[in-house]
Design a binder for these strands. Structure first.
Lengths: 140, 140
DNA sequence: CTCCCTGCAAATCCTTTGCATACCC
DNA sequence: GGGTATGCAAAGGATTTGCAGGGAG
């Protein structure tokens, strides 16, 4: 599977230094997803002048392009998931809010019986697992 | 199952007119969950002077008490679910953001194999179904 | 009578937007 | 060079908080 940067280049997306740094930062967190603020902080290490607005704009562009997924697990900041080409679910730490990808065996869609759909046209099922991550277990 | 208002009375929670109206409003949406702003609007019908801060404070208190669940399905506003005493999952409309409860047959926790837990102490699995609600299907 | 809930307004957090400039293609 | 991404700062929506007064127990 190609990296996000490679895929974007392939789609002839206008590439700028800022956008490259953001895409690379997203790829680094392929299994642990960051908030916009996280991305800004990490990108700033390699490019101190990068602006908050550019990070937000770029993340929204990537979501619109369908190359990155927006994940909301708490009411606070959204997180961004670059790993859209593998089907997966999310595992959230109740202590620190970290989010990582996991793979499951079955299909959660099949757990919903037709009469429980209440007239909705149901297209997707996502499972969110919650618990305490290894780091936070150690800290307790 | 007792209503939210009855349970709160039983827990000797300090009851005020504002809090009663908020709790009753939550109970009205037992299967369709509201945002804080929704609650404010609906409560205002019965009590026009009620303040936004009181609604937010009260909702947070109820979440802390464990009597109401906070639900985040998009990056926008949180929604509040008073139906914590029945195990259930959520069905979200991608068009209007409405959230309602559904019941499923199996258990999503069992879909996660131990080696996929990545060291997390996993305590909960929640499925979020997405689709288009009957109202929005009609509107399209 | 005491404590804490309420309402108001200001503050805070996260995110978006307007505009002039810079730079990718 | 044209069009668009960038950076800054200000605006915007959602939620929280400080403080004075009022009402529940």
């Amino acid at each position: 599977m190609s990296s996000l940067v490679e895929r974007l280049r392939g789609r002839k997306w206008r590439m700028t230094p800022q956008r490259r740094v953001i895409a690379e930062t997203l790829d680094c967190g392929e299994h642990v997803h960051y908030t916009a603020e996280d991305i800004l902080n990490r990108a700033s290490v390699h490019m101190p002048e990068i602006s908050r607005a550019t990070v937000y704009n770029t993340l929204n562009d990537l979501v619109s392009l369908g190359e990155v997924l927006e994940v909301s697990v708490d009411g606070r900041s959204k997180r961004y998931d670059p790993n859209i080409h593998h089907d997966h679910e999310h595992l959230v730490c109740d202590a620190c809010g970290a989010v990582r990808d996991v793979h499951i065996d079955g299909d959660a869609l099949s757990l919903l019986s037709p009469q429980e759909s209440h007239g909705f046209l149901v297209t997707e099922a996502k499972v969110t697992y919650r618990g305490i991550c290894p780091d936070c277990q150690g800290r307790s």
